[in-house]
């Protein structure tokens, strides 16, 4: 069975630490610096939404170049093979895949968020041109990056597993794998037996009266 990360809305306090950690670890290894889980606040509850690593994944089915494959108990997306056709984002029933990259200059939005001069580290002189024409500190790592699909990869490159689980202050995130799933299923079966026998013994007691 494919494993996946899921959040418990009762515990999630919407603090976005998971999103920040996700960007940080992926940027570090040269993958898209974009959160792969998105904290979503609704009137019914709040939690980060991310890939469920479906057994019969619609995103893998619709990918025309085979960039999305099932291997090692997860759905993997190869950011180098991806052509940015966005079909996977349309097919995903959870909203867990998002295209991300820099847009061409000609398509610039009428209102971009304001970014201050690049915040390089003290002691490292910047080229004078960088001072007269401040660059976005965000663009430092994203300029010229073509748009590809971005989704949860379970931090496969980390020995400690998904970073989001590690940093969540309320431990609202957990990994579901075949072991934990069967443990939870058998616990619920035991509860079902207990409840059923309670109901039935109550009923037979009533019949006996």
């Amino acid at each position: 069975m494919n494993r996946f990360v899921i959040a418990e809305p009762k515990l999630c306090i919407g603090c976005y630490t998971c999103e920040a950690a996700c960007v940080d670890v992926h940027q570090e290894v040269g993958l898209q610096a974009h959160p792969r889980l998105v904290v979503t606040q609704t009137a019914q509850g709040t939690m980060p939404v991310q890939c469920r690593h479906c057994e019969d994944a619609p995103c893998a089915k619709v990918c025309p170049v085979g960039a999305i494959t099932e291997a090692d108990g997860m759905i993997q997306l190869n950011e180098s093979t991806c052509i940015g056709c966005k079909m996977c984002a349309l097919a995903c029933p959870f909203g867990a895949i998002e295209p991300h990259g820099s847009s061409p200059l000609s398509q610039q939005m009428p209102y971009e968020p304001y970014v201050e001069s690049a915040g390089a580290i003290i002691g490292e002189p910047l080229a004078p041109s960088a001072i007269s024409a401040p660059l976005s500190s965000l663009l430092d790592w994203s300029a010229g990056v073509r748009t590809v699909a971005v989704k949860c990869d379970l931090c496969y490159f980390r020995e400690d597993g998904p970073k989001c689980i590690q940093v969540c202050p309320t431990k609202a995130l957990r990994i579901v794998d075949s072991e934990s799933l069967s443990a939870s299923i058998s616990a619920k079966r035991r509860q079902t037996v207990a409840k059923t026998s309670q109901v039935l013994s109550g009923a037979s007691a009533a019949e006996n009266e």
């Binding site: 630490t17 999103e19 920040a20 950690a21 940080d24 915040g119 390089a120 490292e124 202050p169």
Partner: peptide
């Protein structure tokens, strides 16, 4: 535990605009 500002809010220390 820490929140996102605790983990990731330290860049200002070495920012060249200091």
């Amino acid at each position: 535990e820490l929140c996102l500002k605790g983990y990731y809010g330290f860049n200002h220390v070495a920012d060249r605009r200091r």
